[in-house]
Amino acid sequence: MDKLRLLDVFIATCDAGSFAAAAKSCNTDPSTVSKAINRLEAELGFILFQRSTRQLSITAAGRRYADTVRKLLQDLNSCEHELKHLNDSPGGTLRINSAACYGHLYVQPLLQAFCQRYPAIKLQLEINDLHVDIIDNDIDVALRTGLVKDSRLVARRLSPMDFLTCASPDYLAARGTPRCADDFLQHSWIGFRIKQTQQLQPVFLPDQHGSYQPFELQRSHITDDGEAMAAMCADGLGFAQLPHFLAKQGLQSGALVSLYPYYRPPQPDNGVFAIYAKRDYLPARVRVFIEFISSALEVAGESSNHTWAESWPSLLQGNISGRSRADL
């Protein structure tokens, strides 16, 4: 029996006046109550109750101890009630860490509406591409592409991450639209360098059967910033294979066109995830933020299993003719 349980039994005995009555209120038996009081007295080194065959009477030391224990238990109950209320009522500081592009394009535009709905929540927003330890850095929720394999964390997928092969209309007008595999050798490509590995993100294009395969293509330009990559593509510097959240504004405005239907990597860690610490009781501020983001994505045509890119029109059918990828 732990110390807190011993104190509960002690106060029940004080109130009931006997081991039998205390046992009834504690839903146990008199011998268990007697053993608990004996153990508590042994730990304290003084007598709490005088016992006789007819009655149980509290000692002066027991009475003073009971006053302190009652206050301690009341303070504890009050604190637990207050914390539960805070946990059930969205409020306090919400620390968010987001991947840069996703944070700028998807998260930041939603924050005004979120704060209007939950005025008691104060935001601390960190936007960067560093994979920080959210527990060590006291971050409530991180929005990341790719699943973090950490048993201390929960990863809830907000959407897949679909890729679109894009170019500007001006670029296509000046350089032509590729019709076969050989044509790609004559075009400029903008590559993305992954900061964590310093490797170039692979390019996947549909083969003559419409199945996406990795293609080894020379990159004319390289950047490690996704928004810069999309801007360079819109400025006519070449083709770029962009995640759906980077391509969206350019496609909707007409600054970009999609050459092929979307490509979705088959790996289970593909996607955009809300990542937070595993715990028994998720704070309300975290829960409502994830629900708010998910609802906003649903309105925009995205969910855990699909994105708007699935229905976006492309210039060409989902295949290229000509030589195989080995010939490129």
Results as ranks from 00 to 15, higher is better:
residue 150 D to R: 04
residue 79 C to Q: 14
residue 73 L to G: 00
residue 100 A to P: 03
residue 144 R to V: 07
residue 121 I to A: 04
residue 117 R to M: 09
residue 84 K to S: 13
residue 118 Y to A: 07
residue 156 R to N: 14
residue 86 L to A: 02
residue 109 P to A: 04
residue 105 L to V: 12
residue 162 D to M: 10
residue 75 D to V: 12
residue 80 E to G: 06
residue 164 L to I: 01
residue 91 G to Y: 10
residue 68 T to W: 08
residue 120 A to P: 11
residue 135 I to R: 03
residue 126 E to L: 13
residue 136 D to V: 07
residue 100 A to W: 15
residue 84 K to P: 04
residue 105 L to H: 07
residue 92 G to F: 07
residue 73 L to M: 11
residue 163 F to V: 00
residue 84 K to D: 13
residue 110 L to T: 06
residue 71 K to Y: 09
residue 142 A to F: 04
residue 163 F to I: 01
residue 96 I to S: 02
residue 85 H to T: 11
residue 141 V to K: 02
residue 154 V to Y: 02
residue 115 C to S: 15
residue 131 H to F: 09
residue 162 D to E: 12
residue 64 R to A: 12
residue 83 L to C: 07
residue 128 N to D: 14
residue 60 A to M: 10
residue 137 N to D: 13
residue 93 T to R: 13
residue 119 P to N: 02
residue 77 N to P: 11
residue 76 L to W: 11
residue 158 L to I: 05
residue 118 Y to K: 08
residue 89 S to Q: 11
residue 158 L to F: 05
residue 134 I to E: 06
residue 61 A to W: 15
residue 82 E to D: 07
residue 126 E to G: 02
residue 71 K to G: 07
residue 74 Q to N: 12
residue 123 L to Y: 03
residue 99 A to G: 06
residue 131 H to I: 01
residue 95 R to I: 15
residue 137 N to G: 00
residue 116 Q to S: 09
residue 158 L to S: 00
residue 116 Q to A: 14
residue 148 V to Q: 09
residue 135 I to G: 05
residue 84 K to R: 15
residue 73 L to A: 03
residue 133 D to N: 06
residue 106 Y to V: 05
residue 159 S to T: 06
residue 127 I to N: 11
residue 149 K to Q: 13
residue 118 Y to N: 04
residue 99 A to N: 08
residue 162 D to Y: 06
residue 93 T to S: 03
residue 83 L to M: 08
residue 90 P to E: 04
residue 98 S to T: 13
residue 62 G to V: 05
residue 96 I to F: 09
residue 162 D to G: 02
residue 68 T to F: 01
residue 121 I to W: 14
residue 80 E to T: 04
residue 107 V to E: 05
residue 100 A to C: 13
residue 117 R to G: 01
residue 140 D to Y: 05
residue 63 R to D: 10
residue 158 L to E: 02
residue 83 L to S: 06
residue 160 P to I: 04
residue 59 T to N: 02
residue 135 I to C: 13
residue 127 I to A: 08
residue 117 R to T: 10
residue 64 R to G: 04
residue 147 L to D: 00
residue 81 H to W: 07
residue 86 L to H: 14
residue 111 L to D: 06
residue 133 D to G: 10
residue 157 R to H: 04
residue 68 T to D: 14
residue 85 H to D: 02
